[in-house]
């Protein structure tokens, strides 16, 4: 079975950018073949089931649309970002494929950043699919509620709103997945639902629209920039741009923490 191996010694080393592209390509392929991705897409269209409960809303009354979108953002979005974020690295650890990656000439932080870019791409695809389905769902199930081409700003706004949720939450959960060896999903769930429900509603109830809730900042950004014609929300003494900075800070802060943790982590 043995043939003499060609003894060429390879001096070539692909540049950082190329290595990143190859890693993303491998990771994206993984999601394409992973049934989990399709289950997440299916879960993400569940809010459509609630459309039937809406009383003839009329698109100008966007508050009526918020019902399903709220379910989406407070229950399903954290769930999707949790599953994709936490499992990004922990799946590689569990399947031991991390060993294959660590044995290659790539830095550990390159693996984390490539994973992050990959889950952002997958998140964008999922949010695009579900916001489109939601939009079309309104168009089909509640005739007259939406003009197919006349209300594209709603589609775009919803998509950006969901994308922002995903971006911030998935990055936090990516860090949780790198940091914890066990029970990452459990802790992630606790964080997600504490933040989405209690952070907004309970803190909100006691102290107005609390700046300590990530969800509030995202909602504030959406009300100011993405869906300003339809929703109104603010955080006291906070400028919208400050909320943008908070979200950017959270994303890059947790991405940095994930890369830093990965650099110093043992993979027994």
């Amino acid at each position: 079975m043995v043939n003499k191996q060609n003894n060429t010694k390879y001096e070539y080393s692909p540049p950082l950018f190329s290595r990143g592209i190859f890693l993303i390509q491998i990771f994206l392929n993984k999601y394409v073949y992973d049934k989990k991705t399709y289950i997440l897409i299916l879960i993400s269209v569940l809010p459509l089931l609630t459309i039937g409960n809406i009383h003839q809303p009329g698109i100008e009354d966007y508050v009526d649309l918020i019902g399903p979108i709220s379910i989406f953002t407070f229950i399903i979005m954290p769930l999707i970002s949790l599953i994709l974020g936490v499992t990004a690295i922990s799946d590689e650890k569990e399947n031991k494929t991390i060993s294959q990656l660590l044995a290659r000439p790539v830095r550990r932080e390159e693996i984390v950043i490539s994973k992050w870019i990959t889950i952002m791409i997958i998140g964008l695809i999922i949010t695009t699919i579900n916001s489109t389905i939601l939009y079309l769902g309104f168009y089909i199930l509640l005739p007259g509620s939406i003009s197919l081409l006349g209300n594209l700003s709603v589609l775009l706004g919803t998509w950006m709103y969901l994308g922002l949720w995903f971006g911030v939450y998935a990055t936090i959960f990516l860090f949780v997945g790198v940091f914890l060896d066990k029970n990452a999903i459990g802790l992630g769930l606790a964080i997600a639902y504490f933040e989405a429900f209690f952070g907004q509603f309970i803190f909100g109830a006691f102290s107005g629209n609390s700046p300590f809730s990530v969800a509030n900042h995202i909602y504030y950004i959406a009300s100011e920039f993405f869906l300003s014609d339809y929703i109104s929300f603010n955080i006291a003494k906070f400028e919208p741009i400050s909320s943008v900075l908070v979200c950017i800070g959270l994303v890059f802060g947790f991405l940095f923490l994930a890369a830093f943790t990965m650099r110093r982590k043992d993979f027994p």
Binding site: Y10, Y12, P14, R19, F22, I26, Q100, R104, P105, V106
Partner: peptide
């Protein structure tokens, strides 16, 4: 795929 992390495509 893993070799692409070290080598040019054809190689």
């Amino acid at each position: 795929s893993l070799a692409r992390l070290l080598l040019p495509r054809e190689e």
